[in-house]
């Protein structure tokens, strides 16, 4: 089975000379389709850096990054249009939702599809379906400022799922949610992983959702300290 995400010896150094900071060091990580992997570790351990490298927002310093079997970086980017890669193959979920405040919930979701070239009417239709699937269909016309934290996070998830990406990356998606809503969000992600055979990589500090992951990877000082699978 081709891995959705494959990191081989990935490293990242910020700055140079005496002030250089090694944020990630020789990271090897493979995430397969349908797998939900949690990434934990203390602040400054390199979790967000790792996520940003997989999202092609941050360029690694060394190693090799492959997505869906295709080498994306091995000393330099092998893909000319990184934004296209992101909009077609990666779904991103952020801690603070990052919904566009001037678009309704439906349009926030539809935008991801229209950017990928989907007809606007079809995009809106699928956006409404996704919001229904995430049980916030009745809030489809609401502006982000009118949504609760949980609702906004579900809209952000709908946006991440809009183009049926094979990879979903989430940075602290449950940080602003209470325990019950956090579990609902994680259950939704697990459902998506199964339905779409997507690989899901989630950065989290939230211990109450640790049981929702297939695998947990612990980082410390830029290195993988532990990588273990949840008992079936």
């Amino acid at each position: 089975m081709t891995a959705r995400i494959a990191l081989e010896g990935i490293g990242k150094t910020f700055g140079a000379g005496e002030t250089a900071l090694r944020a990630l060091d020789r990271i090897d990580l493979v995430v397969h389709p349908g797998e939900v992997v949690g990434l934990k570790g203390p602040s400054g351990s390199g979790k967000s850096t790792l996520l940003n490298i997989v999202a092609c927002i941050l360029e690694p310093t060394d190693g090799r990054l492959a997505l869906d079997g295709e080498t994306v970086w091995d000393g330099r980017y092998r893909v000319a249009d990184l934004r296209r890669l992101r909009r077609e193959r990666i779904g991103l979920i952020f801690q603070f939702h990052n919904l566009l405040p001037f678009l309704t919930a439906t349009d926030n979701v539809a935008l991801a599809m229209t950017l990928a070239g989907t007809d606007p009417a079809k995009a809106r239709g699928r956006a409404r379906d996704l919001l229904d699937y995430l049980q916030i269909g009745k809030r489809a016309g609401a502006m982000p400022s009118r949504l609760s934290g949980g609702e906004a996070q579900r809209v952000a998830i709908a946006r991440a799922l809009a183009n049926r990406p094979g990879i979903i990356l989430a940075d602290e998606p449950t940080a602003a949610l209470d325990s019950e809503r956090a579990r609902v969000v994680m259950d939704l992600l697990r459902q998506v992983a199964q339905d779409q055979q997507a690989a899901i990589l989630v950065v989290t500090h939230d211990e109450k959702i640790f049981d929702r992951f297939d695998r947990m990877v612990a980082l410390r000082d830029g290195r993988i300290e532990q990588d273990w699978r949840r008992a079936a």
Binding site: A55, I57, R83, R84, L85, R86, R87, E88, L92, N98, L100, P101, F102, L111, A112, L115, A116, R159
Partner: peptide, 16 residues
């Protein structure tokens, strides 16, 4: 600024 950065994050082209 943040909205434009978000647009880039979700894959919006320079043309957009």
């Amino acid at each position: 600024l943040r909205e434009i950065a978000t647009l880039k994050l979700i894959g919006a082209s320079d043309r957009t």
